[in-house]
Amino acid sequence: MSFILTAIIMFGFWMFLSGELGIIFIISAVVSSLIVAYISHDLLIGKTDIRSGFSNLLRLIRYVPWLIWQVILANLDLVYRTLHPSMPIEPLMIKFDSKLKTDTGITILANSITLTPGTVTVKADRNGEFMVHALARGPAESLLEGTMQAKVRKIEGSEEKRNV
């Protein structure tokens, strides 16, 4: 199942990139996407249940607009801190336990922390423990309030712990 799905995704990607419809191009597309799917079908899809993976993808898409708004806020904040003559920064490291369980959730949270105001992920391990470098005290406190963790936990949904 994962083999066929990977092959279809690879074929679609090839068609997007080439845009040629000649018979030789189609044949080479089919052959190379089958080879790639044979080598790497356990990397892209793995043992994920397809249906829950799909609903997770939908929830992820609903999370993206909020993330983009946060990215814009982060950039305005950083532009202010960079161009201010006296550079109002006061760096500190914080540690917290996010209580996330799956690899997907931890990856999404780590990337979101890096993209949102004033914080960069330094260390994230598979038990859900994060170490974050913050530019000032305000961003660190707003991260510890846990709005983002709740949103990412909602994406994670009912998926059980996979990373044994």
């Binding site: 982060a74 950039n75 532009v79 890096t114 993209l115 004033g118 960069v120 470098h133």
Partner: peptide, 8 residues
Amino acid sequence: RIHPAGKT
């Protein structure tokens, strides 16, 4: 320095 590199 990684703050501007990652976000802006």
